[in-house]
């Protein structure tokens, strides 16, 4: 299958990149492992594609947006100090895809839906949907014009669990904001206020990140290749055997990666024993609202939220506890 026609721009600086954005409709390209698949299926193809591969600023820092997932997976600093990030990266797609795919691309991953990620012929036969060529949702009869396609990145829940920030650069200014304020619960809009011509430069971890134990659990049929059907990241800051602070984040259960503050709040300062973990896990199962738009059934994915959550939290406990 061939790619459709588009103009590929390969700027060497952010300034050059921003200049191209004025040429008309465009897409940013990191590794291209997701975007170009969509292009082959004629999904929302734009006339210009601006590759950020050659922009050095994006490759700087531990969590530079332009670093490949393979680099993230094998980074010795990440593996030693923030192993959940390296581990989550290692669970994305396949080794080959991780050679091209980037950290930024995974954080900015387009939402996915069985009614959307299909060939042009398929969509036209089906009548297409909100997120592509039509104005109707095929998942919910009345989604209130919000698209319920699933956010399926694996790094976002882990970075939410670390309470990371993201740094954006635009033509006129750069800015930094907490990742938890970055996404919007709409599979089409996806971001609260990221402007199209803003670029994700890097993610940053808070100063106390190393004091947190973070673990990620991913639900998928195969141990490689598959996007998450559910994902739970748990983070605990231990203080002399007490869970001084806890965070819980999910992916693939909604059109947005979510931080579940309410669920863990009652257990802050507890010993996070089996009973506490079960309460949190059960609460999470009751909270998530997966849609019927991925491979596994919503009821199974919901049930598995509990298992993933329990396992992630249990994994956070010090060895031997």
């Amino acid at each position: 299958m061939r790619l459709p026609d588009f103009t590929l721009h390969q700027p060497r600086t952010l300034a050059q990149a921003f200049a191209v954005t004025r040429d008309g409709p465009f897409d940013w390209l990191g590794g291209g492992t997701d975007l170009l698949c969509n292009y082959k299926w004629r999904i929302n193809v734009r006339a210009n594609v601006i590759s950020l591969r050659r922009v050095p600023e994006l490759r700087q820092g531990l969590l530079g947006a332009g670093r490949t997932l393979s680099e993230v997976e094998h980074d010795p600093v990440l593996r030693a100090r923030y192993p959940a990030i390296a581990q989550a990266a290692s669970m994305i797609a396949t080794p080959l895809i991780r050679q091209s795919a980037t950290l930024g691309g995974n954080l900015l991953l387009d939402t996915r839906c069985w009614h959307f990620n299909q060939t042009a012929e398929w969509r036209f036969a089906h009548g297409s949907c909100l997120k592509a060529e039509a104005d109707v949702c095929r998942v919910l009869p009345d989604p209130g014009n919000l698209c319920v396609a699933a956010y399926s990145g694996d790094l976002a829940p882990v970075l939410l669990a670390y309470d990371a920030r993201v740094v954006l650069a635009g033509p006129s200014a750069s800015r930094s904001l907490p990742l938890r304020e970055f996404y919007a619960a709409d599979g089409i809009r996806r971001f609260r206020d990221k402007k199209p011509d803003e670029v994700l430069v890097r993610a940053e971890l808070p100063a106390d990140a190393e004091h947190w134990t973070v673990r990620y659990q991913k639900l998928r049929l195969r141990q490689a290749f598959d996007f998450p059907e559910g994902g739970v990241a748990a983070a605990v800051r231990w203080d002399h055997g007490w869970a001084a602070d806890i965070r819980l984040a999910t992916t693939a259960y909604d059109s947005i990666p979510l931080l579940h503050e309410d669920l863990v709040a009652p257990h802050r300062g507890s010993s996070l024993d089996d009973e506490a973990i079960e309460q949190i896990a059960q609460a999470l199962e009751e909270t998530v609202r997966p849609m019927k738009n991925t491979s596994m059934s919503p009821s199974y994915r919901k049930k598995m939220a509990r298992v993933l959550c329990r396992r992630a939290l249990q994994d956070c406990r010090p060895q031997g506890v």
């Binding site: 060939t119 398929w122 036969a125 195969r222 490689a224 491979s295």
Partner: peptide, 18 residues
């Protein structure tokens, strides 16, 4: 009558890990 998973991502062939 519409095939939902006509791709090698959605049609789940076991990988070497399986």
């Amino acid at each position: 009558g519409q095939l939902l998973n006509g791709s090698l991502l959605d049609y789940k062939i076991p990988t070497p890990l399986e």
